[in-house]
């Protein structure tokens, strides 16, 4: 019998796991529920549970489609809001007023004392997520599960999580090959390579929120703090020095990539904090790559595996087995599991 904890090697490692989806309705909540069920059946200590964005609703806020409820067991520590407490069937003991406000009222940390369905309240800011995970650990949660928002990779940030489960499925394409291609693009984006140790050693100890150019004579900070505007200073610097790397402390957007290319940058690694800061489309990555600009990160994201959902709202239904094989061909190093049926393909590479 397939056990999710074994498939994704979660029995011992990865104290903080994020579930993110390739798109909305990719099966994040189903995966999260399967994870909670597996932990409960394995007799693991109750986890901490929090959400990025809004989750736990019974119906999709956009499409109105029914969503699986999050079933929580006694002892689970969760982040939920004042109004969500009244709408959950699970009975909760409030532990802390976090001071964070959400559209559903103030956000509380609470412990489940009678099991049932839970409405989570989403957190939007990175700093709040860090604060909540730290408080959950302090309150005794040895493992923390983060339900990621459908369109943001923030939950995958490596300072926040030890590993990411990616929910994918029929929502990402109308054929298994299309789903596999879309999933591989996202996984490639999440698994940007680490900057070389030699470059990391040259990074400032106290990170500045400025773009830094590492070159043969030292480090020059750019006056621009973001890549939102053209970079004449970089163009000037490139005429004088051959840069060893550009350190970008914030987000790299398609427009930022345009400005780097327009300044004449080529054959230089860009170092981002982590892959969640690379907000690029596959085409942008290819444009940078053609000029010899390699995207690297200070902290890498560990993708634990793929959770498969062959059903999408609107009646699209792909067969689980061919979908799993298409994904295995595209991403042979990742385990794949359909949490609904238990179909499991181990990594082959």
């Amino acid at each position: 019998m397939t056990d999710l904890l074994d498939v994704f090697d979660l029995r011992h490692g990865a104290a903080r796991v994020a579930v993110v989806g390739v798109a909305k309705n990719a099966g994040k909540t189903t995966t999260l529920c399967a994870l909670l069920d597996a932990l409960d059946r394995a007799g693991s200590p109750p986890p901490g549970l929090l959400s990025v964005g809004v989750d736990g609703e019974r119906h999709d806020a956009f499409s109105g489609a029914a969503k699986p409820a999050i079933q929580v067991h006694a002892g689970t520590i969760c982040a939920t809001a004042e109004q969500a407490v009244g709408r959950s069937t699970a009975r909760l003991d409030l532990l802390e007023d976090t001071g964070i406000t959400t559209p559903m009222g103030r956000l509380f940390l609470a412990r489940v004392h009678l099991p049932g369905e839970l409405l989570l309240a989403g957190v939007r800011h990175r700093a709040d997520l860090h604060h909540l995970t730290a408080r959950m650990h302090a309150l005794g949660a040895s493992r923390i599960l983060i339900d990621g928002a459908f369109d943001r990779l923030i939950a995958a940030e490596p300072t926040l999580t030890d590993g990411v489960l990616l929910a994918t499925g029929a929502v990402a394409g109308s054929t298994p090959q299309e789903v596999a291609r879309c999933t591989r693009d996202l996984v490639d984006r999440m698994r940007l390579p680490a900057a070389t140790p030699a470059l990391v050693a040259r990074l400032p100890r106290d990170p500045e929120h400025r773009i830094l150019v590492l070159h043969d004579e030292g480090t020059t900070p750019l006056e621009a703090e973001t890549l939102l505007r053209p970079l004449p200073q970089l163009a000037h610097l490139l005429r004088q020095h051959r840069p060893d790397a550009i350190i970008v402390p914030g987000a790299l957007t398609p427009r930022g990539a345009d400005h780097l290319l327009a300044a004449g940058l080529r054959h230089t690694p860009l170092v981002l904090p982590d892959a969640t800061h690379a907000l690029l489309r596959p085409g942008d990555l290819r444009r940078l790559s053609r000029r010899g600009i390699e995207l690297t990160v200070q902290r890498t994201i560990r993708v634990l595996g793929l959770s498969l959902n062959p059903v999408a709202p609107g009646g699209v239904h792909l067969e689980s087995t061919p979908l799993a094989h298409a994904l295995q061909e595209a991403l042979p190093d990742l385990p794949i599991l359909d949490v609904r049926t238990g179909l499991h393909l181990p990594p082959t590479a």
Partner: peptide
């Protein structure tokens, strides 16, 4: 059935 029942109470 020697099969794992999923969290959605389904078996394949």
């Amino acid at each position: 059935y020697a099969a794992r029942v999923s969290a959605q109470r389904q078996i394949a």
